[in-house]
Simulated scan of single mutants.
Amino acid sequence: MRLYIDSADVKQIALLNEYFPIAGVTTNPSILVKENRPYLEVLREIREIIGEEKELFVQAIGDTAEEIVEEAKFINNELPGNVIVKIPVTDEGLKAIKRLTEENIPTLATTIYTAFQALMAAMAGAKYVAPYVNRIDNLTGNAVNVVAEIAKLYKTYQFETEILAASFKNVQQVHAVCLVGAHTVTVGPDLIEKFIAFPATPADVTEFKNQWQKAYGLDKTNLVNS
């Protein structure tokens, strides 16, 4: 299991990257536009924060396979490090994924709503597929079942393509897709912070500290008392 930040907010990315086991950052056109500044400037800042080993996902917006391939090459030339090009699963998108796979440029097939879309993307050579969990729930039904079906198909036919589940509104959705076989997830900053939030945890920490201080005095730690 790997965790990605779904954001282009460099301050939030820097904070989460410091504290959480982050594997990289995913972006899309909507996320980048919100930053209201040149997108390459934002992406380069993200790269500086996460380093060159972690994956940075950038979406192509061309309509034809030729345009998408050209964009993918431009993105890879402009950004250092480990870059994954996101491509929507359309007929032109699949064509582009096939061509980029032949040229060893890794891709993520995005806007996945059905298991068969994910199967076609894997057959075309995509490194990742991104089922839109909350959107599937809202539009067509049970997203957890879709993710489970994708995982089963990939296991049956021994595809190396990984499921990078996206579009979450609550922690339970993330938990559910992890249980049925999602290899990775990409989640917004606000939701990531909720992963470890539970009322009993700080209460327990306070109780432990109070007991320790009663026994050994204020401001005493294991190091002081060793």
Rank of each mutant, 00 (worst) to 15 (best):
E193G: 04
A115C: 08
P38L: 05
Q158F: 13
L79Q: 06
A130H: 01
T184Q: 15
I97N: 10
L94C: 06
D63C: 09
T156G: 02
Y154R: 00
A130F: 00
T26L: 12
E102A: 14
I192D: 02
I5T: 02
F20Q: 11
Q173C: 06
A165Q: 05
Q173I: 09
T156N: 14
K86V: 06
Y154Q: 01
E67D: 08
E102K: 15
E102Q: 13
E70T: 14
E71C: 02
D9Q: 05
I13K: 03
I13N: 05
P80C: 02
A126K: 05
R2M: 12
V187M: 07
Q117F: 05
V224K: 10
I84N: 00
G24H: 02
E67S: 08
N28A: 09
I68G: 06
M123I: 15
E160N: 12
F208R: 10
E66N: 12
L3D: 02
F198G: 09
E78L: 09
I5N: 03
N36P: 00
A122K: 03
H175E: 10
D190E: 13
A182F: 08
R47V: 02
A203M: 11
I97K: 10
I5V: 14
K214T: 12
R99S: 13
G217I: 11
I150R: 00
A200M: 12
F57T: 06
K127W: 03
A197I: 12
V89D: 09
I136V: 09
P88F: 00
E149W: 02
E55S: 11
Q173E: 15
M1G: 11
F195Y: 07
E66W: 07
T64N: 07
G125H: 06
D190F: 03
V85K: 01
A118W: 00
